[in-house]
Computed example of a mutant assay.
Amino acid sequence: MTHEPAQRQSREWTLSDCGEWIAVPGAGDDKYSRGVLGVVTGSDEYPGAAVLGVEAATRTGVGMVRYVGDDVPSRLVLERRPETVTAVGRVQAWLIGSGMDAAHRDPANAARLRAALADGVPCVVDAGALDLIAEEHAPVVITPHYRELARVLAGDAARASGGGAGAPSAEKIAADARGWARRAADATGATVLLKGHVTHVCAPGGEVIDVCTGPDAGWLATAGSGDALGGILGALLATHADRIAAEGHDALAALAATAAALHGAAGARASAARAGGPIAALDVAEHVATVVGDVLSAA
């Protein structure tokens, strides 16, 4: 599990690589053909994650967001983004788990998460749904930070051997984040987006893609920043469902790297708007549309 085959390389992903992976609607498109993202995030205890993910997805460019969740986050999502649909229906991708706690998962949210994983469409799995990835039935991107990845790998080791022996600590993962992103992709069969100052993306059996978020990246280490990243990635998956069906994890890895690059650039934009000062996660989400416009203009 610790050996890294020599033929597997790494590369850097920048904003100049993103243009190909941003869908631009045409005159014949409608809200359905532009992509519908289903969202099961947030909880009555952590409702803000739902608001941030939906906001970021909307700003990235998606035809519709369907939010399915508890009463408190549902109300807050609709107050912030009244165009959000709260009725269950067909989607092209799911974003699940942000703002949820697996240790205190109630039956309603457990059913929502499992239904999303069983839907057969691409899925972004974050935070409080990471323990369920063994139940997936479609291409999955997981978006852990170091501590969350340590728990994922401990669960994988427990399923394989009946115990968690040999699973790395968060500190061990941080010391070799690129290597552990690669190992985690192979171990779980999911595309891995490992969050950090440098984000590492890897598909099973694939190269590692490094996304450097720039000198202002420290301001992105703020509550809710990962929830916004999940919304960006969910929107990209929903707008590229056909390409994911054709290219599988290669497309998922490119889309995950694109999401990380857009997220980092939005954070830099938000900080620049405050003379280089601190930002909040909602600031990041609000600047995504401008960054997308910049990328498309350059392309």
Rank of each mutant, 00 (worst) to 15 (best):
H3C: 10
P5V: 06
R11Y: 11
C18S: 12
C18E: 01
W21C: 09
A23M: 11
V24G: 12
P25I: 08
D30C: 07
S33A: 10
G35D: 01
G35E: 04
P47S: 07
R59D: 05
M64K: 14
Y67F: 07
V68T: 11
V68A: 08
D70I: 10
V77H: 03
V77I: 00
R80Y: 06
R80V: 07
R80S: 08
V85E: 06
G89A: 02
W94Y: 11
L95S: 00
G97Q: 04
D101G: 04
A102L: 11
A102G: 14
P107T: 04
N109Y: 09
R112T: 00
L113F: 02
R114D: 05
G120A: 05
V121F: 08
V125E: 06
A129C: 05
A134K: 13
A150R: 00
S161L: 11
G162R: 02
G163A: 11
A165T: 06
A167R: 00
P168F: 08
I173M: 08
L194C: 04
H197L: 14
H197G: 15
G205A: 03
G205E: 05
E207A: 12
G214M: 12
A217N: 13
G218T: 07
L220W: 13
T222A: 09
G224L: 13
L233P: 05
G234D: 02
A235V: 05
A238M: 07
A238I: 06
A241I: 03
R243T: 10
A245T: 09
L252K: 04
A254D: 11
A254T: 05
T258E: 04
A260H: 09
H263M: 04
S271D: 05
A272R: 15
G277V: 00
I279A: 13
A281M: 00
V284K: 12
V288T: 00
T290W: 15
V292N: 03
